[in-house]
Amino acid sequence: MPAHPQHVPDSPTSGPLASADISRVVLDDSDITRALTRIAHEILERNKGAADLVLLGIPTRGVPLAERIAARIAAVEGDDVPVGSLDVTMYRDDLRMKPARALLPTQIPASGIDGRTVVLVDDVLFSGRTIRAALDALNDIGRPRAVQLAVLVDRGHRELPIRADFVGKNLPTSLVETVKVSLAGVDEVDAVTIQGPAGGEVTA
């Protein structure tokens, strides 16, 4: 078990699974679509509309999720919500524990974030450390009126006092398992899978 668990999307997800691992799909493409639609509605409901919203995806897979949520908001409200990306690499607290990593794009919409409600979007919420880094990164970019968090999967095991405002699916997991989010566009298909060692305890 790694001392500081990382959810899978922080690591390359290519490469075949070890044959000893068991992998099972917990969300398929239609589950994901429904979850994102619900999140879009909840965001609108909570914020009483789309005005002053900015969606910032955390690369890699938070970005297409943010775009999909924005598209659903636009379909409901007719408004285009600004979407951007926020790379948190340099703010990570485990930066020194791995070889220096390539930076991923940070693109803040031209409207900026000052005085706006920023919804951070990520694929999996796990220890909470990525979100802490994202909050620090936001702090260097501007002063939002509020920051909210939307995640496709919350797998538990928080190590910081952080919670999501909008969750696609709560997915209790064991620490020996990994949660893998695939998204068409980045990956081949839409799916969320849990992988764990064969014979390992699965607490679905």
């Binding site: 340099m90 930066l95 020194r96 524990m97 791995k98 070889p99 220096a100 990593r101 390539a102 930076l103």
Partner: peptide, 11 residues
């Protein structure tokens, strides 16, 4: 500088 010093080892 980031790629040499940012991580546990240079990239």
């Amino acid at each position: 500088l980031y790629l040499l010093l940012g991580g546990s080892e240079p990239a």
